[in-house]
Simulated assay, not measured.
Amino acid sequence: MSNEKTSLIERLRNDKSKNKYDPTCYDFIVRQTMQRLGAPLVRFKPHVPYLINDPLFVFRGDPRYIFHDPLGYKNDALKQRPQIIVLGNSQVHSLSCPPNQTWPGLLQNSSGIGTYNAAMGSFSIVQNFLSARELASLKPDLMICVFYTSNNVINSLPTLRKSTSALKKMFNSYDDTVSMSFQNPDVDPFASVSPKDKIMEFMKLAKYEKEHYVTATIDKLIHFSVPAIRSNSQNLKDPYVEVGFNLAKEALLKIKKIADKHTKYGLFLMIMPTKEFVLYNRLLSYGDVKFSSDREMSILYENESEVITSLKKHCDKEGMHILDPLSYLINTMHLPIYNPLNVDGHPSLEGRTVLAKYVYDFLGKYQVQ
């Protein structure tokens, strides 16, 4: 057996030619999932066209949505073996754009390597674990789980509270007594669906964002950011946040066990920072960002730095590979990689192109035997 090392991207290309795609496995997963969901499929919220109820996942993608595949994930028809499965939330799903404009889609187009987008907006790491378990029999070469440092720190707790008792028992950190002690009007997937309550929810969010947003100017680009909203969900001194973070780390270990068993190269954790954190790091690196207020941005920076440091220590301890695109994002922040004049924290098409390039470059440098 040769001890010669090669880049992971080249190994994936070589593996692609050796493995023919067998659609029967995917079709079996679809039949199992649809049987569990039952009929008719019911929207999770009447006004959200891309989500349906799922008693285990709580919610999942609607396979009837124009950009979704038969499992409700955002992919075109599966024509090749998915060598990479990407798990995540809306930072990967990208909400209303077509599959080929998500960063996994852009990665597949640029590399020719089969990449399956198994993310969904508002998914927690617990739901990513369920997706990994659901798709494991596809035998990908590796899994990438994207950890968004805002929502993914806390949202495993509300997911488990709405899921089955059997799933709750799988997590030692689960706590049904701790409550949220801070105000965070960010869109809640479990909020009431009545039209009146929805209007009030958006009015409350708009008012809060107007009072707490911070403008960040780089050259001619103006970004609106909401550091207070991003920061309070990352305050590890808060018991609610601490429980949510511990649950997320437990779920990551469960994903790693699945990846170790069913893939060749295991689990890679990609740490996706908030737009606000990237902006503050851009200031520290280049000094070319002007904030309308620095206080809440500096608190966000401290909290998010602690989360990322803790997450990296957890990965090092458990033997997880880490992808950290922060430097790529910092170096391109003078470009509209996020939609300017908007508090939204999702990457634009240009930003998703940067992320696809980062992952491609990472796989090109990562050496395997």
Results as ranks from 00 to 15, higher is better:
residue 262 H to P: 01
residue 11 R to V: 06
residue 116 Y to D: 08
residue 297 M to L: 08
residue 173 S to R: 04
residue 211 E to P: 01
residue 34 M to T: 04
residue 213 Y to H: 11
residue 107 L to E: 11
residue 336 P to V: 07
residue 84 I to F: 13
residue 161 R to G: 07
residue 156 S to L: 05
residue 130 L to E: 14
residue 359 V to K: 03
residue 158 P to W: 02
residue 3 N to W: 02
residue 169 K to Y: 10
residue 71 L to H: 13
residue 320 M to G: 08
residue 27 D to Y: 10
residue 8 L to A: 01
residue 172 N to P: 01
residue 365 K to P: 00
residue 231 S to F: 02
residue 216 A to D: 04
residue 89 N to L: 06
residue 136 A to F: 10
residue 67 F to P: 06
residue 325 P to Y: 12
residue 41 L to M: 11
residue 31 R to T: 09
residue 194 S to Q: 12
residue 185 P to G: 09
residue 170 M to K: 12
residue 2 S to P: 03
residue 198 K to Q: 11
residue 124 S to Y: 09
residue 25 C to P: 00
residue 1 M to C: 02
residue 186 D to S: 13
residue 113 I to C: 09
residue 245 F to G: 04
residue 40 P to S: 13
residue 131 S to N: 11
residue 89 N to V: 00
residue 8 L to Y: 09
residue 149 T to F: 00
residue 164 T to S: 13
residue 108 Q to S: 14
residue 137 S to H: 00
residue 239 P to Q: 11
residue 237 K to E: 15
residue 346 H to K: 02
residue 201 E to R: 15
residue 216 A to Q: 01
residue 281 N to V: 00
residue 24 T to K: 13
residue 288 D to R: 15
residue 81 R to Q: 10
residue 57 F to H: 07
residue 99 P to E: 15
residue 229 I to V: 04
residue 350 E to G: 12
residue 339 N to D: 12
residue 242 E to N: 15
residue 170 M to P: 04
residue 119 A to I: 00
residue 2 S to D: 14
residue 85 I to Y: 03
residue 115 T to P: 04
residue 308 I to W: 09
residue 291 F to W: 04
residue 170 M to F: 05
residue 29 I to G: 01
residue 39 A to C: 02
residue 1 M to W: 01
residue 125 I to L: 15
residue 102 T to H: 13
residue 294 D to S: 07
residue 158 P to C: 05
residue 308 I to T: 13
residue 250 E to P: 15
residue 20 K to G: 13
residue 72 G to W: 13
residue 38 G to E: 08
residue 49 P to M: 03
